Amino acid sequence: MAFGLNNAIIDGQSLSDSPYKIGGSGFVELGWNWKTRLGKSGNSPRLKYGFMFQWNKYELKDNKILVQNGNTNTLETFSSDLKQSEFRNTNLVFPLYFEFGPMKTIEKKDRVRYINNGKFKFGIGAYGGLNLGSQLKLRYKEDGDRVKQKIRRDFNVSNFVYGLGTYVGVGDMSLYAKYDLSETFRNQAIKQNNISLGLRVDLD
């Protein structure tokens, strides 16, 4: 499991100029990983691989919403005062990491297990997969009524997702960062790539 802050690297803009709130934008990942040692000792580097579901959320600033006009996306001011303007992508990705650090050896009658057991570890690798869906969620008042609106569209989101990731930590907890090399939206004049920083929990 992993969770934390989410935002975008946009051509010609700094993070402070991003149309997405830094504190309000976040990500969550849930999945399953396996480990395979590359050598015979418990301290050998490992391959860590599996599958993860990613939820990347952007919370838009300044009463803006994302609008799809054919093959073009634009940010437009909404007609009412927004309480929430949130765009979310759901992805299924398959990570592959090289993990380094000592492991504790547990010998049993029929097998040998290697666990981290509170020791330092470092991982670096990549991931790739598919976008499963996109959604714009709006909350606002109209004529005194509270309105919740969910808009599910293509939003010109890239169908394939791929990027780089790294983590460093002790035991089950790690500081985790990932960066999508694939653009969030395909064929747009301004390129945008997702970036995330948070905590990762590996239950060995």
Rank of each mutant, 00 (worst) to 15 (best):
T72Y: 06
S158F: 00
L38K: 07
A2K: 00
G12A: 04
K64T: 08
Y97H: 10
L130R: 02
K109C: 03
A189P: 13
G165K: 05
K119R: 12
T74A: 15
F27E: 03
D11K: 14
D81W: 08
L199Y: 11
V112C: 09
W34Y: 06
K35C: 12
R88C: 00
S85W: 07
V157L: 05
L199V: 12
V112A: 03
M173H: 14
N63S: 10
L130C: 02
T166Q: 12
R139M: 09
D143A: 07
G42V: 15
G24R: 10
N6R: 08
F51D: 04
K64E: 08
N116D: 09
K121F: 00
Y49N: 09
S80Q: 14
I190D: 07
S158I: 02
D145V: 11
K137G: 06
Y58W: 15
Y162L: 09
Y179G: 04
E59Y: 01
K61W: 01
R146A: 14
K104W: 04
P102T: 12
G26Q: 04
R88Q: 09
G70A: 10
F51C: 02
L92K: 05
N7C: 07
S182C: 10
R146S: 15
Q84V: 00
E76A: 13
E183N: 06
R139Q: 13
K178E: 07
G50F: 05
N7V: 07
Q149M: 03
G31W: 01
D62V: 03
F120S: 02
Y162A: 06
S85N: 11
L38T: 05
S85H: 08
G12P: 01
K40N: 13
L96H: 01
V93Q: 02
V168Q: 02
L197R: 04
K150V: 12
R146I: 11
F155K: 01
V93K: 03
K61V: 06
Y97A: 00
K57T: 15
E59V: 13
R186V: 05
I190T: 15
S196L: 07
V157W: 02
G125R: 09
L199R: 10
S85A: 13
R186I: 01
N43Q: 01
K191D: 09
V170P: 04
P45K: 06
L203T: 04
S174F: 04
G23L: 14
V147G: 01
K61Y: 01
A8N: 15
D62Q: 10
W55D: 12
N6I: 01
S158T: 03
G26P: 00
S16G: 08
P102Y: 05
L203G: 00
R113Y: 14
K150R: 05
L82H: 03
G26D: 03
K104V: 08
Y179W: 03
N56D: 12
L66K: 14
I151P: 09
D204N: 13
S79G: 03
K108G: 02
K141T: 13
R88M: 10
G70M: 09
F51H: 02
N89W: 00
E107G: 06
T90W: 11
F160I: 05
L82I: 06
